[in-house]
């Protein structure tokens, strides 16, 4: 077991500090490579690459500050991510003028959902959107009384809430988990860092393997860029990195880390193509423009909508955590 007292200058557990240094190192290397490329081949256009790396820096810094400041700040930060993602989603899909009030209630679900997390109220966190919002939003729409396009509207609005609020909020719940058998320990930061790093690396490695060896397309009608080589190479790389990183950064043992790597690798792929299908249906390339070089925030958190709940439940079943059930 790791010694929770082993801390460095910033007051962080050693393994978290080390992981952050590695992220910093990777980003510095990326910036250097882009800098050298632009100097060596000034005739080529590296604008999108430069922007992409710059956005990575911003995301890494904001994310690090958010999860290290305090539990409250982290929860507000994840709530903000959900809000931005949901707003992008509602702006992308066709909506009806009559749905404005229903959409407004959808946004209000965000502070409530994250408040349950703050209360460590697992019982309500896990049913609030799938049960209460699921029943309430259509009720609000019935009261407005517009039945033209009702079915489609109910479906799309609930889908948006499930993906962008319910699924993403599992990342925040991961952060506040505390174990019954080790009450002094804070496993959350390590688990969230592990989940987010693995999910993003999985995206990157599926892309790289696909570029290097990709031939046979895996889902040509949804995402023509995705290949079998990218998928299999990405998942395998993800499993290996998870196996190395998991026991070091989190409370997971090597076997649990391997399984986590597999879960994140496979589900990350499906989270990605799920949003690709939505964008293809709407005939657009990027979900927005919030992150220059990447597109919108949905383009960045698409994989996380799938990896986050699945990884969370794997962890939640594997350990004895202190949370509240149906009553506080």
């Amino acid at each position: 077991m790791k010694d929770p007292k082993a801390q460095n200058l910033l007051g962080l557990p050693e393994e978290i500090f080390f992981a952050l240094c590695v992220i910093g190192g990777v980003l510095i290397t990326a910036s250097l490579i882009v800098f050298i490329l632009t100097k060596l081949k000034p005739q080529n256009d590296f604008d999108s690459l430069t922007q992409r790396v710059k956005s990575w820096w911003v995301m890494a810094v904001v994310f690090t500050l958010a999860i290290l400041m305090s539990e409250k700040v982290s929860i507000v930060f994840f709530g903000l991510v959900s809000f931005l993602a949901l707003k992008e989603f509602f702006s992308l899909i066709p909506t009806r003028r009559a749905d404005r009030r229903a959409l407004f209630w959808g946004y209000l679900a965000i502070p409530l959902q994250y408040y349950w997390i703050h209360q460590e109220w697992y019982g309500l966190f896990i049913i609030f959107i799938p049960v209460y919002m699921f029943l309430f939003i259509p009720l609000r729409m019935v009261l407005i009384g517009q039945t033209d396009g009702y079915i489609k509207s109910v479906g799309t609005i609930h889908w948006g809430l499930m993906l962008n609020v319910f699924c993403l909020s599992h990342t925040a719940f991961l952060l506040i988990l505390k174990r019954n058998d080790f009450p002094g320990e804070l496993p959350g930061i390590g688990l969230v860092l592990f989940l987010v790093i693995m999910t993003q690396l999985n995206d990157v490695f599926q892309f790289i393997w696909g570029k290097l060896f990709g031939r046979a397309k895996i889902l040509p009608s949804v995402s023509p860029g995705k290949t079998w080589a990218g998928f299999i190479g990405g998942v395998l790389t993800c499993i290996i990195i998870a196996w190395v990183l998991g026991p070091f950064l989190t409370i997971l043992d090597p076997k649990q880390s391997l399984i986590s790597g597999f879960i994140i690798g496979v589900s990350g792929f499906f989270g990605d193509v799920n949003l690709s299908a939505l964008k293809r249906d709407m005939n657009i390339k990027d979900s927005g423009s919030l992150l220059p070089g990447h597109g919108g925030i949905l383009d960045r958190v698409d994989s996380l909508t799938y990896t986050s709940p699945l990884f969370f439940h794997f962890v939640y079943w594997s350990f004895d955590f202190h949370t509240f059930g149906a009553t506080l």
């Binding site: 707003k87 509602f90 702006s91 003028r97 404005r100 009030r101 407004f104």
Partner: peptide, 18 residues
């Protein structure tokens, strides 16, 4: 595009859209 969805004529409730 979009502000007519956020706050159209005759409505007082602001609903966020990009």
């Amino acid at each position: 595009h979009g502000l007519g969805k956020v706050l159209p004529k005759g409505e007082a409730l602001l609903v966020p859209f990009f």
